[in-house]
Computed example of a mutant assay.
Amino acid sequence: MSSQVKYVNPKGCAPAQGLYSHIGTADGKLLFVAGQLSVGADGNVVGKNDFKAQFEQIFRNLGDVLRGMGGDFNNVVKFTTYFVHSQDIDLFMKLRAEYFPKWFKGAELPPNTLLVVDRLVKEDFLLEVEAIVHVA
């Protein structure tokens, strides 16, 4: 492995749900953020069967990761979002319309790829969001 490749778990982040780090980076500026899940600081699932509660926790966790690396949501280059139920897509879009203007400057938002999968690492998770981020 190159000495430039680093794996980071910023302080204040919810614990990873497996054998992985929250961030991988090759240059210290371009960050590949692992899929964030609805996990509280205690490691337990937040919002079982509640899509909105999980959405809020996931983006709270993502915000913690971004701040831990000296950034914020405006440093996001791209999102990838995973759902386990296609029926949640409309609610996701509504929540994005409600929350994103609070988190992002301006009207332009990062690209997002949306996928529906059979399940996530734990049955209780309804969605997962990963990001590519650039920090100065």
Rank of each mutant, 00 (worst) to 15 (best):
R96G: 07
A136K: 08
P15Q: 11
M1T: 08
F100I: 02
N9P: 06
C13Q: 03
V33M: 01
N112R: 04
A34D: 10
K105S: 15
L91H: 08
A136I: 01
N44T: 13
D42Q: 11
D64C: 10
Q17L: 12
D64K: 06
K52Q: 13
Q17T: 12
G70D: 06
R67L: 03
V46H: 00
W103I: 01
Q17I: 10
S21K: 10
I132T: 11
A41W: 06
V116T: 13
R60W: 02
K102L: 14
E98M: 07
T113I: 10
G106K: 06
K29E: 09
M1A: 11
D124G: 00
K11N: 10
G63I: 04
N61M: 09
V129Y: 00
G12R: 10
N49F: 08
E128W: 02
G63C: 01
V5L: 06
Q4H: 07
V117Y: 05
V5N: 00
P15Y: 03
P101F: 10
G43K: 12
F32H: 12
E56N: 14
V84N: 07
Y82L: 15
V135R: 00
D124R: 08
G24W: 00
Y20H: 09
L91W: 03
L127G: 05
D90S: 15
P110Q: 05
V5P: 03
L126R: 15
F55D: 04
D50C: 08
C13Y: 07
F100N: 14
F92Y: 15
A97M: 08
S2G: 04
K78G: 06
V46T: 05
G71Q: 11
G28K: 02
V116W: 07
N49S: 15
M93R: 14
A97S: 14
D124I: 01
V77G: 02
F59N: 15
L114S: 10
G43W: 13
G24P: 02
G63T: 01
Y82C: 04
V133E: 06
I132L: 14
G12H: 14
V39C: 07
N75M: 04
F83M: 15
V39Y: 06
L30Y: 01
Y99G: 01
P110K: 03
D118M: 03
W103R: 06
A97I: 00
K94G: 05
G18E: 13
V65L: 09
D88S: 12
I58D: 01
S21A: 14
G68N: 04
K29V: 05
F55N: 02
L19E: 14
F100W: 13
D50L: 05
N49V: 06
V39E: 07
G68H: 05
H85F: 12
F92I: 00
A136R: 03
D42A: 13
A16H: 00
K105A: 11
D90R: 14
V121C: 11
H85W: 09
D64A: 13
R119Q: 15
D64W: 08
L126N: 12
L114K: 10
Q36V: 05
K122C: 05
G12P: 06
E128F: 06
V135G: 04
K29M: 09
Q87W: 03
Y20F: 15
E98R: 12
R67W: 04
I23K: 00
